[in-house]
Write a protein that binds this DNA or RNA. Structure first.
Length: 842
DNA sequence: CGCGCCACTTAGAAGCTGTCTA
DNA sequence: TAGACAGCTTCTAAGTGGCGCG
């Protein structure tokens, strides 16, 4: 009763916000709602690519979209290949749900206890079951731990070692002590900061903190620095020598014959690789550096500015109302942005047109503004045609011309693409500033079509070390500011004019700075693996809490854990209406007591990040179902489902359960766990490399489905699929033929046995075998491609799957790593490739 | 506590390129 | 030998989450 009342008295602030949102959003929300609903009726509520999906795509989507626990098909229709696949998925993923269920019984027992203790503070409650669990798990985990320790991040190791030396009973105390210490440290730091800030009023606040840290660091590192400088000099020399060597090699290569080249290319590549490897900085072999200080020296050339606008040739004109109009350069430039996009769907959207026209008019001269008042009277087609022709020309360039462009790009890369960080040459991720253009938001973005202005040096802040060569701004210009903040990783930043968000120039994922962080991320996920049981137990207890907030949090964490939903931060109205877990609204779920033979099914339907539609039907525990019913009681469709919680307090609760734990860790954890489980399950030792790769892709796909990573079906999908099928048919016919020939040869051999005839039989047999192998390969390719139609494997591979799982798998099953990781992957995951042996388990 | 700012990660689309095939 | 296409790279939007402040 009390809960219901609470439910009705929804926290006013969130509601107020929504109320404010309502008028602005209502037309759009209605639109979305309508579309989704009609989709459902017509297509059996297919998972479509947001609202972009065409009706024809729906079937396939339906088959692929499966609930990670017990994936339900929306209309019972499935094709054989994917159903088989889904079964496999299902099996693997029931593991998670089994754990949930196991806990369910335990939960019942502990729930009573929980309620009895309700008068106690929430904190204490949370600690008791947790430590209990820990005790039980300790024994089991210890062995695993030892094994895993080999692979651990030094930082993590350190943390662990300190906590592990103690007996479980003492943990609580020590934990508290640690917390105290941490708090004290923080307090002290804060005090110092405040004092310093008072001293140096003129300076910016954050800079003080950073300066302080830097100064301390610098003192410590004085010795190191001088060494480093020497090192840098040495390395520079080395680099030069190596570059020269490489150039020579390239020249040599060029001289040789084609055939010769083919053979030597491989060798050359290998040599290059070796060289690069020895070149590369194995930062992971060094100890972990300080968390707050990201570098001690940083030098770079600054960003590369977009080339100036080249006015259109005199014969290419813009027409207004049938009249030829010569535009001023800026107006013309903006017109070309629109003209270039003319055959894109964007330009048909009203919002896009409106935003574009408004911003365009702002930049026009007075006369232009007076003349050009209606977009529909503007004729960009001549300009459009010009660019199409230009693109065609570019395509038809000779090899030499193309080479010139390539060389130029390489030169740019060489000049601007690298920085010197702590004496090591590191690749920059995005050294080119974003050129001006029209903003292309994702989904129904209210700002689509707005003008993204050209970035001027005066907009750009530079970050580098004090004693480094400070990058030169373009002639006649100044930087917005130059700072020397070594607590951040960016080299340059500017404020983008549409959303007013900062943008940065940062390092490439292959760099130490990014790599170390990545490694740490996976270590955190592995730590979660250790305590996920107790966390699950805890949130299950929360489902029965007397406090609405705890119940909501319990259910939310359950969704995040089970469905790998994103946290769902609050968003402003000035972006597309997308949600994550905490921002789910009542309208995004539907409750079915029974559905397709299952009990307590929750139907999710919402737009997530990048306006990608999440559609899923999930059977949930009875208690969750009851809670959801409670949460939606007396609420409007556009009210928040979880009105009592936010990502901030959800994450706070998670961090209390495990240091460093936030909602997003669950995605990494669940993704990597799924991959590991699936690989263990799907890989057979006696398969061919191709079959193993298919298994890997299947495992990868299971993860992509879990994380809802989608892509638009390739435009030429149907066609290329048909082609492949024809090929398979042909191969089958060839096999038939070869078999006939084999039979004949056998007959001949039988009738008139001879050396020659028996050899012929052997030969024919081999031919049949070869063709069969080829057929198998093609068929594997077919399945793989079909299953990948709307699923994007790349995102999970790059961001969620601990690369060490893959490396270990490759080593164990003798699959060359190049078959799974392309060059970019190998560069990004160099640390994992180098350090992992085949015994690694996530 | 809630807000705004900031820094960093994650994401799909677009663009590009090298390879295969007719 | 062009042209189709798949896979890779580049681009930049859109998330997450920490921190400081009032």
């Amino acid at each position: 009763m009390k809960l219901e009342k609470e439910g009705r008295e929804k926290s006013s602030k969130k509601l107020e916000k929504r109320e404010k949102k309502k008028p602005k959003h209502s037309p759009k929300e209605e639109q979305n709602g309508e579309q989704i609903q009609s989709d459902e009726h017509q297509q059996g509520s297919a998972l479509s690519r947001g609202l972009k999906c065409e009706a024809g795509d729906a079937d396939v989507n339906m088959d692929i979209k499966v609930d990670p626990d017990k994936r339900v098909h929306h209309d019972g229709h499935e094709d054989s290949s994917s159903s088989e696949n889904n079964e496999k998925l299902l099996k693997s993923q029931t593991k998670i749900s089994k754990e949930h269920q196991n806990n369910e019984t335990k939960k019942e027992q502990t729930a009573d206890l929980h309620l009895k203790q309700e008068s106690d503070s929430e904190q204490e409650l949370s600690i008791t079951p947790q430590t209990e669990m820990k005790n039980r798990e300790d024994e089991e985990n210890r062995e695993k731990e030892e094994e895993r320790d080999k692979h651990q991040h030094p930082e993590e190791k350190r943390k662990k070692q300190s906590s592990e030396q103690d007996k479980p009973e003492k943990r609580k105390k020590i934990k508290k002590e640690e917390e105290k210490k941490e708090k004290d440290d923080k307090k002290n730091k804060k005090r110092k900061k405040i004092e310093e800030e008072k001293k140096e009023k003129g300076d910016k606040k954050s800079n003080n903190k950073r300066k302080k840290i830097k100064e301390e660091e610098e003192k410590e590192k004085d010795d190191k620095k001088s060494k480093k400088r020497k090192k840098i000099d040495e390395e520079d020399k080395k680099e030069k020598v190596k570059k020269d060597k490489k150039d020579e090699k390239k020249k040599e290569k060029g001289k040789k014959d084609k055939n010769d080249e083919e053979g030597k290319k491989e060798k050359g590549k290998k040599e290059d690789k070796k060289e690069e490897e020895s070149d590369k900085w194995k930062w992971w072999e060094e100890g972990k550096s300080c968390d707050a200080v990201k570098w001690s020296s940083l030098e770079h050339k600054g960003p590369y500015f977009a080339p100036d606008y080249e006015p259109l040739p005199a014969n290419i004109c813009f027409y207004y109302d049938g009249q030829q109009v010569k535009l001023s350069p800026l107006t013309e430039e903006i017109a070309t942005f629109y003209a270039k996009m003319l055959d894109h769907e964007y330009t048909t959207k009203e919002v896009f047109q409106k935003n574009f026209f408004k911003d365009w008019r702002k930049e026009m001269t007075k006369e232009e503004r007076k003349l050009i008042t209606t977009l529909s009277k503007c004729d960009f087609t001549h300009i459009h045609k010009y660019f199409v022709e230009k693109a065609e020309e570019k395509k038809n360039m000779t090899k030499e011309e193309k080479q010139v462009l390539k060389d130029e790009a390489a030169r740019l890369m060489e000049e601007f693409g690298y920085c010197l960080l702590d004496g090591h040459r590191e690749k920059i991720g995005n050294f080119k500033l974003e050129p001006p253009g029209l903003f292309r938001g994702r989904g129904e973005h209210p700002k689509m079509g707005r003008l993204k202005k050209r970035i001027q040096p005066e907009d750009v802040a530079i970050n580098c070390s004090k004693d480094s060569k400070i990058p030169e701004p373009p002639a006649g210009h100044k930087w917005k500011r130059v700072q020397h903040d070594n607590t951040v990783t960016w080299l340059a930043s500017w404020l983008e004019n549409i959303q007013k968000r900062p943008k940065y120039i940062m390092l490439n994922p292959s760099s130490k700075l990014k790599g170390e962080k990545d490694w740490q991320k996976y270590e955190t996920a592995r730590r979660l693996k250790e305590c996920v049981k107790s966390i699950r137990k805890r949130y299950m207890q929360d489902w029965k809490s007397r406090e609405m907030k705890s119940r909501q949090r319990g259910v939310a964490i359950y969704f995040i854990d089970k469905l790998a939903l994103r946290a769902g931060n609050e968003k402003d109205d000035e972006s597309a209406d997308t949600v994550g877990c905490c921002s789910l609204r009542v309208e995004h779920i539907r409750l079915h007591k029974h559905l397709d033979g299952l009990d307590h099914v929750v139907e999710f339907d919402f737009l997530g990040k990048d306006s990608i539609r999440y559609y899923n039907k999930v059977p949930v525990e009875k208690q969750v179902f009851k809670n959801l019913k409670l949460f939606i009681k007396h609420k409007d469709p556009e009210d928040d489902l979880f009105d009592r919680i936010s990502t901030v307090n959800l994450n706070k609760a998670l961090t209390e359960s495990m240091s460093g734990l936030t909602a997003k860790v669950f995605r990494t954890f669940n993704a990597s766990t799924t991959l590991q489980d699936q690989l263990n399950k799907l890989t057979s030792d006696d398969g061919t490399v191709e079959e193993k790769i298919l298994s890997y892709n299947r495992a990868n796909r299971a993860v992509a489905i879990l994380c809802n990573h989608q892509r638009a079906a390739p435009k030429t999908f149907e066609k290329s699929m048909q082609l492949l099928q024809e090929k398979i048919q042909k191969k089958k016919e060839q096999i038939e033929e070869a078999r006939k020939e084999l039979k004949e040869a056998k007959q001949v051999d039988k009738d008139t046995p001879s050396d020659k005839s028996s050899k012929l039989v052997e030969k024919k047999q081999k031919a049949v075998q070869r063709l069969c192998d080829q057929l198998k390969k093609l068929q594997l390719q077919e399945t793989d491609r079909e299953e990948n139609k709307v699923i994007a494997l790349g995102t999970s591979k790059l961001n969620y799957l601990d690369p060490r799982i893959t490396v270990a798998w490759c080593k164990k099953h003798q699959v060359p790593i190049e078959k799974i990781f392309n060059k970019t992957h190998r560069e990004k995951f160099a640390w994992a490739i180098d350090m992992t042996d085949e015994s690694f388990q996530f």
